[in-house]
């Protein structure tokens, strides 16, 4: 049984590494370049639609299992984990932000965040959640049902949800493509700022050129 406690990376400065990753869909095989990210380093994966960006993120997060290759997060090879072990690992160590935010419809902003903690088997900490919402200027809307929020507000809550468990790795799939320019800047800055705060590695996948210049680390797919 693999121990699933939160991976503490002390000496090892790598937080994400992929080896020979490829995925076969019914008609074609997509191969991905190896990615290596140091702890706290932010990386932009750039590529046109349909090149498999989302697939790559899913392979990294363990939502999709890889047929070939390996994904290391910290000192854990997640390709070797069973499905429920991967679910568990992901809940604790990976925060994911999607292009369009989706929430549990019947729950409020606060409840969605506390659910994220609960599902990751963390103790729900109200202060922690409220502080996080405060930082994202969403504390006034904690009790609101998520689908009543604006796009920009929803994306802030999605960021809060990705951060709530203080993950090792934050994966963002087209986080800004549904937003206008000013919101794009704000959301991006927030993302980087919050990732830095918890010393997390940020991997952003996008075809949005507005984000291109903001990263030192860029990988073209």
């Amino acid at each position: 049984m693999v121990k699933l406690n939160r991976v503490k990376v002390v000496n090892d400065m790598l937080s994400l590494k992929t080896n020979n990753l490829s995925h076969q869909y019914s008609q074609r095989v997509i191969s991905f370049p190896d990615i290596t990210c140091a702890k706290g380093e932010h990386t932009l994966l750039l590529g046109p639609s349909g090149c498999g960006k989302t697939t790559l993120l899913q392979l990294i997060s363990g939502i999709r299992s890889s047929q070939r290759g390996e994904v290391w997060i910290g000192d854990m090879n997640i390709s070797e984990l069973s499905q429920s072990q991967r679910d568990n690992f992901r809940g604790k160590n990976i925060g994911i932000i999607y292009q369009r935010s989706h929430f549990v419809r019947s729950l409020s902003v606060y409840e969605n965040l506390s659910l994220a903690m609960k599902l990751a088997a963390q103790t729900v900490n109200k202060d922690h959640i409220m502080k996080l919402l405060e930082k994202l200027h969403m504390d006034g809307k904690a009790k609101q049902i998520t689908y009543t929020l604006s796009q920009g507000e929803q994306q802030r809550v999605a960021i809060a949800r990705a951060l709530v468990n203080e993950p090792l790795l934050i994966l963002a799939d087209e986080p800004t493509s549904a937003l206008d320019d000013s919101n794009t800047d704000a959301v991006f800055e927030l993302l980087v700022e919050q990732a830095n705060e918890v010393n997390a590695t940020l991997v952003v996948v996008t075809h949005d050129n507005r984000l291109k210049d903001k990263f030192n680390n860029r990988i073209e797919l």
Binding site: S61, I63, Q83, S84, D87, N88, R90, G91, K92, I96, H102, F103, V104, R105, L115, A116, L119, A120, A121, R161
Partner: peptide
Amino acid sequence: ERKYELALMRSMGAGPSQ
């Protein structure tokens, strides 16, 4: 209609049994 919501919960760490 809840497919996405359930998948989301899975992605947040909920196992199939949950």
